[in-house]
């Protein structure tokens, strides 16, 4: 008797699936940006003849109390929120890289200062810090970006610092020193190949947080001005109409936000699988 009990029949194997997922995620964002651009001014145009229409085939997200098409507004909102989130995440990851490198490489005093800053950053409630900084910077896109960037670096800093500290005690790094290699050579050839993937994946996994927090800040009124069609603004506005039964005003942009965040999460995790030589070949 010969059986094939353990074989898993998957149409695609892991690597194909990983690459496909990454491609799908990137396409998703491309579609958002391109269609937001194609819609042009349409989202802002008021049309009082088409007020408060529920979702239909013609207008899948419905219209609001001024007759503006919610699909167009959501896409524009997503574009703005994503850009703000991306910028903030990139800034944040860059700060984390600098701090992490400094803590691990520049000796005990710098390490103590950085770890103290990390602890403080993690101990203060996120939202309070966000609101304070955004308010102090005068709100708007600039305020949101600065606030989010300044509050999201601690966790990635810790990861990068730990990674480098662990690497520095590895046998192959000590061996490299015995071969007469200098610290700069070791950092470039031995440490960077480990830190760069950590950095890229860390940045991708920061996006979901920054996007949500940017939207949250705006929703609470400490972020973007009410005239800009950010997702947070859309959600805040919809609050006033929810009790009147205009549920689609909140549901459609909300789901769109959650989906984009989830897609970024997937993107980050798939990148991680691809960048590790151990799993990249499965």
């Amino acid at each position: 008797m010969t059986t094939n009990l353990f074989s898993r029949s998957t149409p695609w194997d892991l690597r194909t699936r990983t690459l496909m997922t990454i491609l799908a995620c990137i396409t998703f964002f491309a579609v958002i940006f391109i269609s937001a651009w194609l819609y042009g001014e349409q989202g802002q145009v008021t049309n009082l003849g088409l007020r408060k229409l529920p979702p239909s085939w013609e207008r899948p997200f419905g219209t609001d109390w001024l007759g503006r098409d919610m699909l167009a507004r959501t896409l524009k909102g997503l574009r703005l929120s994503l850009s703000v989130g991306l910028t903030a995440a990139a800034c944040s990851a860059f700060i984390a890289l600098l701090f992490g490198l400094a803590a691990a490489m520049l000796g005990r005093t710098v390490d103590l200062i950085v770890t103290w800053l990390v602890d403080v950053g993690m101990a203060v409630p996120h939202l309070v810090l966000l609101i304070l900084i955004s308010f102090a910077c005068g709100g708007g896109a600039k305020g949101v970006i600065i606030a989010v960037a300044a509050s999201h670096w601690p966790s990635l800093t810790r990861v990068i610092r730990a990674e480098i500290l662990q690497l520095r005690s590895a046998d192959y790094i000590k061996l490299s020193r015995q071969f007469g290699k200098g610290p700069y050579w070791i950092a470039r050839r031995h440490l960077l190949p480990h830190v760069i993937p950590q950095f890229v994946v860390g940045m991708l996994l920061l996006f979901p947080h920054t996007i949500l927090h940017a939207a949250g800040l705006t929703f609470l009124g400490f972020g973007m001005s009410p005239h800009t069609p950010a997702i947070g603004v859309l959600l805040a506005e919809s609050m006033r109409y929810l009790s009147m039964g205009l549920w689609w005003l909140a549901v459609a942009p909300g789901i769109a936000l959650i989906v984009s965040v989830k897609v970024f999460d997937m993107l980050g995790n798939n990148f991680r699988a691809l960048l590790d030589p151990r799993t990249s070949q499965e």
């Binding site: 590895a170 046998d171 192959y172 061996l175 015995q178 031995h190 190949p193 480990h194 030589p277 151990r278």
Partner: peptide, 14 residues
């Protein structure tokens, strides 16, 4: 030069 018991730990996995 020193040779280790576990060669896996003595080389950079990347």
């Amino acid at each position: 030069q020193l040779l280790f018991q576990h060669p896996q730990l003595a080389v950079n996995p990347r």
